[in-house]
């Protein structure tokens, strides 16, 4: 029974959906405020969701219907699954084992692949261009993201998120050494979430909506929800690895700390979205390999040296 509760209510689907929609609202409201606009009312993401759920589902005639319909669900489940391994109200998550960090990173890659497959099988030209761009972008941000996050695991000497959290929570100033890794991972996360300046795969003015061009109704709703959840999970991952504050307190206080940390990262992403123009795909790849990868390598070097000193 308790597992069902975990999966369906907390911290599973219900909590995540509510939190994801709330985060989307904060992202949109902040974006609007930064642009000196009023912005949407609080229920707007929910209203959008309900509207999409009520709309007609259209599957293109030439599309592979099964793949086309399956992909939003795959994206949704993989993001929700990833969330169970991230500590949110204490030092330990619900499920943990040595190596869950890698599992989370791979589960977070699955949505990107579903964008590719969904876009490719919908056979629209715009969707195909978008899905190719999605993959191109994947190869650019994935390496710095992995290196940034894994280098912090290096000091903690564990590939379990919970143990990393325990390690950093008990050594208060260690997170400072990971600051470069945090910056690199945050930028890479923006690439993963396909938000400006890296919203190239769904660049509205070029390829309409990229992979999602042919999606409508329920399937689009699920895609959008899983993108929102992906944002939450990505932010939680960064918060657990790089911002190890407040985990030593009792569960409710630690949970509040967690919410603040996630919203902080969401706010940072919103600010990024506001102040940059969209890059071209070649510029994006160039930027990632020229600046982000060397920086994450530097982080790796720093952590290797630190680890040597510590032991």
């Amino acid at each position: 029974m308790i597992y069902l509760f975990y999966i369906l209510v907390f911290p599973g689907i219900l909590f995540l959906s509510v939190f994801a929609l709330a985060a989307e609202f904060i992202d949109r409201k902040l974006y609007a405020k930064l642009q000196n606009r009023i912005g949407p009312p609080w229920f707007q993401p929910l209203a959008d969701m309900i509207k999409l759920l009520g709309k007609e589902d259209i599957v293109p005639t030439d599309a592979n219907a099964r793949m086309f319909k399956l992909m939003p669900l795959v994206a949704f489940t993989s993001t929700v699954t990833a969330f169970f391994y991230i500590p949110i109200w204490g030092e330990r998550s619900i499920y943990y084992f040595n190596g869950d960090l890698v599992v989370v990173l791979y589960l977070l890659t699955i949505p990107t692949l579903t964008f590719f497959i969904g876009g490719w099988y919908s056979t629209s030209l715009f969707a195909r261009l978008g899905s190719v761009r999605t993959l191109t972008q994947l190869f650019a941000y994935e390496v710095p993201l992995f290196m940034g996050i894994l280098s912090s695991a290096l000091i903690a000497n564990s590939w379990s998120l919970s143990e990393i959290a325990v390690f950093y929570a008990h050594r208060p100033w260690f997170w400072v050494s990971n600051i470069i890794g945090f910056a690199v991972s945050l930028i890479a996360l923006v690439g993963k979430l396909e938000k400006a300046p890296f919203d190239i795969p769904e660049a509205e003015t070029e390829i309409v909506a990229g992979s999602f061009t042919e999606y409508s109704g329920r399937h689009l709703a699920f895609f959008r929800l899983s993108i929102d959840i992906e944002m939450i999970v990505g932010a939680s991952l960064l918060a657990a690895v790089f911002l190890p504050f407040g985990l030593e307190f009792s569960a409710p206080i630690a949970f509040i700390f967690y919410i603040i940390k996630v919203l902080f990262i969401v706010a940072l992403i919103a600010v990024f979205r506001t102040i940059f123009a969209r890059l071209r795909i070649d510029q994006m790849v160039h930027f990632c390999w020229k600046y982000l990868v060397p920086l994450s390598l530097l982080q790796l070097l720093i952590n290797l040296i630190l680890k040597d000193i510590l032991t």
Binding site: K33, L34, Q35, N36, R37, I38, V271, T274, I275, F276
Partner: peptide
């Protein structure tokens, strides 16, 4: 300089919005 609009954008948080709730 990347992020040249940052200052202006952040100061908008504390300003009256330009749009109206019609």
């Amino acid at each position: 300089k990347p992020g040249r609009m940052l200052y202006q954008v952040l100061s908008s948080l504390f300003k009256k919005t330009a749009t109206l709730d019609y």
